[in-house]
Design a protein around this nucleic acid. Structure first.
Lengths: 323, 323
DNA sequence: TTGTAGGCGTTATCAC
DNA sequence: GTGATAACGCCTACAA
C-alpha cells in the first residue's frame, strides 16, 4: 500500500479510503490512486484488513459430507443466495467425522468468520462443538439440530413433510394391496429422528426399518423387505438417497415400481428426477432456506440465539408413487 | 494473548511458543500457559498469525458448480486427502459464472491462500483469471485446462479413456446392430474438447451430438437420436450426467437398455451405480488425483509452473453396456 | 530457556 | 479532504 501511495504521491490513508470506499476522496486523487494500483498490480490484502476491522465478510459453511447430494446442493444454493451480498461463502467438509468437524469449527473461528453455518454430524455428540462456536460468533444450525443447545436453527418442517406424505398415500394408495412401511435412518441426526416421529404420528403403527442416510442402506432395506415376505408395499423413506437405493435394488430383482412397490423419498435432490421411474418426494425448499439464513444474519443479535425457523416442504409427485 | 501471558505469569513470546509449538518451552511453564489459555477460553487468532507469517496453511478450491456430482465428489476427496496434512481445504463455488469465478479467485488471493486449485469454468474465457492467480500464488488447474496459459494441471487422460471405451465396444458390441454414436458437450471446457477428439481419434467418423454438461442435455439428446431414426445404438457420452439423462429418457419412451440402446458414461460419479440399469462408465481416479495434488504442493516451486499430470482412468462395466 | 520489541497490511482517529 | 499515526494479534530476531 505504501508503494501505491508513493507512486500516486498521496498518503496510505488516502489509498485506503479509495480502495475501501470508506470515505469520499477528491476525484483527481482517486484516479491517481487507482492508476498507481493498477500499474503496480496491487491487490488489497484481506488478512490485514480482517485483522484491523475484526470482521471478514465471510460466512463459513460446515457440511458433514459433500458427496451427499442434498448437502452439496444446499452449499450451492447458499453460495448463490449470498452472491452480491458482499459476503463470501466458504465451504468445509467434515467427512462425517466428529474430530474433523471440530477442526473445521476451530479453523473457521480462528479465521474470524462473521457467521458460521453448521450442519452438525451428530445429534448429541456435536453439541459441544456447536456450543463452542455459538460462544464466539453468530452461529446457525442448518437442516439438523443438536440436542440441549440453544443455537439458531433453520430447517425443514419434517412433521409437516410426513403429513404431506400421509395425505398423498391415503388419497392414492390401496393400503390393503400396498401396505405402508417405513425405511428410515437411525436417530443420530435430528432429521432422522423427526422424520421417524412424524411418520409415526401421522401413520400410526407400521413396520419400520432403520439404517443410515445412504444409498447402500436403501439397497439393503430392499432385501430385508423381500426377506420379510413383502411382495408389494408403499415404502416411505427418510431420504431420497435411501429411496433411490431401494428403488434400484427392487427393480434389479424384478419387482415393478410403482405397480408392486411404491417408493416415496424425502429432500428433493436433483437426482430424484433422474431416477427411472422418477421419485415421488418431499422437496425441501433450498432457495427459501438460503434466503432465511441471509435474513437471519441481517437481523439476529448475539443476544437471542434461540431463533428456530421451520420451513414448509412441498410434495413432488413422481412416477414411483403416482397420483 | 497478553491476557494469557499475564495469567500464566510469562511473556507473550512464551505463550506463542507453547501454542504454536515453534520452540521448546520448559514443561512447567507449558502447563501454566495451557491452563491459562483454557481458563480464559483463549483461541489463537489465525488472522494475526497469517498476517505475521505470510502463509495461511490453506488451500482454496474453486469449483464451477457444487450441484455437479463430479465436482462435489472431487471436493470431498480433496478434503479427505488433506485431512491430517495441516492444510485446510476451503471450497468456493463459481456458480458457472465467469464474474463469480473471478471474484472467488480475488477473494482467495486476498486471503493469502498458499495454494489455489481451480476447475476453470471456461476453456478460453477463464484464462485471464487463472493467469492472474498463478502470478501471486501456487496455482493448479484441476480436471479442466484453460488454453494458452502455462499453469500446473492435474486431470484425467481423456484420450486414454476413450481408448478404453473403444476397446470395450469393439470387443462386446455388434456395431451393425448397435452403431456407435457420440453425445458430448460443446468445447467450452477442455474436457469436452479432449473427449470429443479422443472419441474421433479412436472411433473415426460417427454421428456426433454436442450440447452441455448436464442432465437436461442428455434427455434432449435422446429425443434427437430418436428423431433421427435411431431405434438402436451404442451411445458414447462425454459425462455420466449426460448418459443418465439419456438413459432415463430412452426408457421413459419405452426403449430398452442395453437391448436396444447401449449407454456409456464418463467420470464414474457415485450415482452412476445408482441408475437402473447401472451405467457402464470411464471412472476417473479421484483419490489419485487428490494425492497427486498433495504431492505437487510439496515439490513444486513457483519457477516451474508447467507440470502437467494426466492420470489414467479405468473402465467400469455396468448393466447399460455389459461385457 | 525466556523476555523485549518491531513489524506484517490495513483502517480509524485525530489533527490540519 | 488529506496526512500522520496508533493499533488490530501474532511471530521471530535479538538480547539476556
Amino acid at each position: 500500500m505504501a508503494d501505491v501511495a508513493a507512486r500516486a504521491g498521496v498518503s496510505t490513508a488516502t489509498v485506503s479510503r479509495v480502495l475501501s470506499g470508506s470515505r469520499p476522496v477528491a476525484e483527481d486523487l482517486r484516479r491517481l490512486v487507482l492508476g498507481a494500483a493498477r500499474d503496480l498490480g496491487y491487490k488489497v490484502n484481506l488478512v490485514g484488513r480482517a485483522l484491523r476491522k475484526g470482521r471478514t465478510s465471510t460466512l463459513g459453511l460446515l457440511v458433514p459430507d459433500l458427496d451427499n447430494p442434498f448437502f452439496s446442493s444446499l452449499a450451492q444454493h447458499l453460495s448463490r443466495t449470498f452472491d452480491g451480498s458482499g459476503i463470501d461463502v466458504l465451504v468445509f467438509s467434515a467427512d462425517d467425522d466428529l474430530r474433523i468437524e471440530r477442526r473445521g469449527i476451530e479453523s473457521f473461528l480462528g479465521r474470524q468468520v462473521d457467521t458460521l453455518v453448521i450442519i452438525p454430524c451428530h445429534e448429541s455428540e456435536s453439541s459441544v462443538s456447536v456450543a463452542l462456536a455459538a460462544e464466539s460468533t453468530l452461529t446457525i444450525q442448518l437442516d439438523r439440530r443438536v440436542s440441549d443447545v440453544d443455537v439458531h436453527f433453520v430447517g425443514c418442517d419434517n412433521h409437516e413433510g410426513m403429513r404431506l406424505v400421509e395425505g398423498h398415500v391415503s388419497a392414492c394408495v390401496d393400503q390393503k394391496r400396498q401396505p405402508v412401511v417405513y425405511v428410515g435412518a437411525s436417530t443420530e441426526s435430528s432429521s432422522g429422528h423427526e422424520r421417524l416421529e412424524g411418520f409415526r404420528s401421522h401413520f400410526g403403527e407400521h413396520p419400520t426399518y432403520l439404517g443410515t442416510f445412504d444409498f447402500g442402506w436403501g439397497q439393503d432395506a430392499a432385501q430385508r423387505l423381500l426377506a420379510d415376505g413383502f411382495r408389494s408395499a408403499t415404502v416411505v423413506t427418510a431420504a431420497d438417497i435411501i429411496g433411490l437405493g431401494l428403488l434400484g435394488r427392487l427393480q434389479s430383482l424384478g419387482h415393478r415400481v410403482p405397480e408392486d412397490f411404491r417408493v416415496i423419498g424425502f429432500d428433493g435432490i436433483g437426482v430424484a428426477r433422474l431416477a427411472h421411474p422418477t421419485l415421488t418426494t418431499v422437496r425441501q425448499p433450498v432457495e427459501e432456506i438460503g434466503r432465511t439464513i441471509l435474513n437471519l444474519i441481517n437481523t439476529a443479535t448475539s443476544a437471542d440465539r434461540h431463533t428456530l425457523v421451520r420451513i414448509a416442504p412441498e410434495l413432488v409427485i413422481g412416477e414411483s408413487s403416482p397420483a
